[in-house]
């Protein structure tokens, strides 16, 4: 046997993530863990998240305190668990705001009459010119910092990008061969929109939703990190970061570990979203 083959033909990149089911299962396991933490925090926590114990203040991670303790001696791991519910709600809420807005803007841009769609297109482009965090900051400046303003700010901040995606999807479906085939069969416009264009264009929304929840939590925690989110006594993850910020030099774990939790959650959501995307694309291509 002689291997004359040279590395020339390669697998398409999309096959790769889909080919690793363990990544998919790991992502689901991680997400399930956080769902349980959000619904039954007591089942997973090891300490009372609010119990102060100044004797144990700024204790590094140990067998007793998995994530260490904060300046008041509260167990950080338990605080993270108890903060899950609010953090997830902020992420899901922001995603709901974002995708609703994106759906309205994207559909109008792709489907409204000539003049209206041109106007909506411009609005999307203007909003897209603002980076996500900046748009969110602008909104926080107007509304004032709170959990609710985080939901709105992050939701609006991420909406323009998704609006562009949805617009593109609808335009692609509108321009497709199967829509033309349906016209040739004599189907009316509204029927085609309902039966071909929207179902195909909105298919990736599931994947986008998963991706977006992870991203929203990251953006929301970024606002909190800047002191523009939920106020510190709360165990919400961003608030934990904000509180731990002052102790970076003495107690790095106070920011590193809650940050790690956010990274893990965001990564799991991204992985799940990409898998769904790949499965959908496999059906289409």
């Amino acid at each position: 046997m002689t291997a004359l083959g040279q590395p020339l033909l390669t697998k398409p990149v999309s096959a790769k993530l889909a080919a690793t089911p363990w990544g998919f299962f790991l992502a689901i396991a991680v997400l399930l863990f956080f769902v349980v933490a959000a619904v039954f925090p007591a089942a997973l926590a090891t300490h009372d998240p609010y119990a102060m114990n100044f004797a144990n203040a700024l204790h590094p991670p140990s067998f007793e305190f998995w994530f260490g303790t904060d300046e008041s001696g509260r167990d950080l791991y338990s605080r993270v668990i108890y903060g899950t519910r609010e953090s997830l709600l902020i992420g899901v809420g922001a995603t709901a705001v974002s995708l609703s807005l994106a759906l309205v803007l994207g559909s109008l841009a792709a489907l409204a009459g000539r003049f209206a769609s041109a106007a909506v297109n411009r609005i999307i482009e203007v909003l897209f010119a603002f980076p996500t965090l900046l748009l969110a900051l602008l909104l926080v400046a107007v509304i004032g910092p709170s959990a609710m303003s985080q939901v709105v700010a992050v939701g609006v901040g991420t909406a323009p990008g998704y609006a562009r995606i949805i617009r593109g999807q609808i335009l692609k479906a509108k321009d497709s061969g199967y829509v033309e085939a349906a016209v040739a069969l004599g189907h009316p416009r509204a029927w085609i929109l309902r039966n071909h264009v929207l179902p195909n264009a909105l298919r990736p929304l599931v994947a986008i939703f998963a991706l977006s929840v992870g991203q929203s939590i990251v953006w929301a925690s970024s606002l909190s990190f800047l002191g523009l989110g939920v106020a510190p006594p709360s165990p919400e993850w961003g608030a934990l970061l904000d509180a731990g910020k002052q102790y970076i030099t003495q107690a790095g774990w106070l920011t590193v570990l809650p940050g790690l939790v956010i990274v893990v959650l965001a990564l799991a959501a991204t992985t799940l979203g990409k898998h769904i995307q790949n499965i959908l694309e496999k059906d289409e291509k």
Binding site: V13, K16, S222, G252, T255, V256, V263
Partner: peptide
């Protein structure tokens, strides 16, 4: 080949999602 490129691709995805504050703190520490 499959192995190297999937490691590359997974790392791209993982790194792209890193929040600035977290990465910054790690690098600082």
């Amino acid at each position: 080949g499959t192995k190297v490129s999937s490691v590359g691709a997974v790392l791209d995805t993982a790194v792209a999602g890193l929040p600035h504050y977290w990465l910054g703190i790690i690098l600082l520490l």
